[in-house]
Amino acid sequence: MPRVVFLVGAVVVVVALIAAIAVVGNLVSSLFQTLAARPPAVDTRIVAPDESKAAKAAGDASATPEESAAATWLAAQPTTYWLTPEIDPVDEVWDRVAHLASEARDQDAALSVAVYGLPDRDCGNHSAGGLDPDAYRDWTSRIGDALRNAPDVQKIVILEPDSIALSSSCGSQGDRASYLRTAVENIRGTNTWIYLDGGHSAWHPVDEMASLISATGLIGDVRGVALNVSNYQDTAAEFAYAHALSERLGGTHAVIDTSRNGAGPAGSEWCNPAGRLVGPAGGSFGDGVVDTTLWIKPPGESDGECNGGPPAGTWWPAAAVELTRESR
């Protein structure tokens, strides 16, 4: 009997040692991943998603040769993927993010997503929609779970474009700040760099925009702000705006959307202005405040039903052809 007790005790000790080694191994792995995490910088390359609207348009047999060429060229460009509840609902969004993370590994790239499902999104304008508060909590929780499931991948999250810049005109600053806090809490994790909406240089004066951002109470919980998302402002103007915001917000960082600013702005027109061009590739520029430039708004997708465009977010072949006329 004592020998049996000894053997059982020995097995228990061995099992405990194995468990302890596993725990230590997990801690070491987690620590290594945390130490290896680096924020986006110049030369950051993000995923070119294989299920983007450009990629789907490239396979459209009814497209003209010029439309097909534009879509094929755009499909190959590293571009942020927009997570919306309309396309990636709560029961599908985890799989979408996991697929994008797998692509990032295959392409040796970072993953960049725009989270765009805020309650009362766009205040009833061209991109109206979004989720109710409870559904938004669940949806962003699924997104965060999927992002944390890929600790080895650098993740860039553009959180709710236009949400803060529109908050004063929508009359919903407090509610929006609460939703954004929920999203940040749900999404943040190892090697995940979150950027809040920061508008752009031709929208709010810098002091006003800084006040709107500061009022969310989130500036210490995120990497920084995303500027020029879905807009056309010159890169130099956005760099100056980023530096001015950083001075007022305690040194926060920024990313700048250059996907469609190759010809600069068209005055105050923001909805499908004519004559625009794609801008410099993501990862082209950065400094001590601007982490990097990125393609955030996918070129070829409409801003809304204006200037001949289809509904917001719909693939528009004519726009794709025009935007890429000097690049492909």
Score class of each variant (00 low, 15 high):
Ser30Asp: 14
Thr258Ile: 07
Glu301Val: 02
Val289Gln: 09
Arg276His: 11
Ser230Ala: 15
Ala114Arg: 02
Arg248Ser: 06
Tyr195Ile: 00
Leu31Glu: 08
Asp207Lys: 08
Ser268Val: 14
Trp82Tyr: 11
Tyr179Lys: 04
Pro78Gly: 06
Gly304Glu: 00
Val255Arg: 05
Val24Trp: 15
Thr182Arg: 10
Pro310Ile: 04
Thr258Leu: 06
Asp43Asn: 14
Trp203Met: 10
Thr140Asn: 06
Met1Pro: 12
Ala61Asp: 13
Pro133Ala: 15
Asp95Pro: 01
Ala22Glu: 11
Arg137Thr: 15
Leu249Pro: 01
Asp43Pro: 03
Arg3Gln: 14
Trp82Phe: 10
Gln173Asp: 02
Gly251Lys: 02
Thr140Trp: 04
Ala19Trp: 13
His200Pro: 07
Val278Gly: 02
Ser302Lys: 04
Ala20Asn: 13
Val113Ala: 06
Gly262Cys: 01
His200Ser: 12
Asp162Gln: 06
Pro119His: 10
Ala98Cys: 03
Arg181Glu: 14
Ser68Ala: 15
Val153Arg: 07
Ala19Asp: 07
Pro119Trp: 10
Glu51Ala: 01
Val290Pro: 05
Leu7Lys: 12
Gly130Cys: 02
Val47Ile: 12
Val23Phe: 12
Val47Glu: 03
Pro265Gln: 10
Asn261Pro: 08
Val8Asn: 02
Glu326Met: 06
Ser141Arg: 09
Gly174Tyr: 06
Ser112Cys: 09
Trp73Cys: 07
Asp88Glu: 08
Gly251Met: 06
Pro133Arg: 13
Glu51Pro: 01
Val11His: 07
Glu66Thr: 15
Pro151Lys: 11
Lys56Ser: 10
Tyr241Gly: 01
Pro119Val: 11
Gly144Trp: 06
Ala202Val: 01
Phe6Val: 12
Ile143Ser: 00
Ser172Arg: 14
Val14Thr: 08
Pro317Tyr: 01
Ser201Cys: 14
Ser168Thr: 13
His126Asp: 14
Gly308Arg: 13
Thr258Phe: 12
Asp162Ala: 01
Gly224Cys: 10
Ala177Phe: 09
Gln77Asp: 00
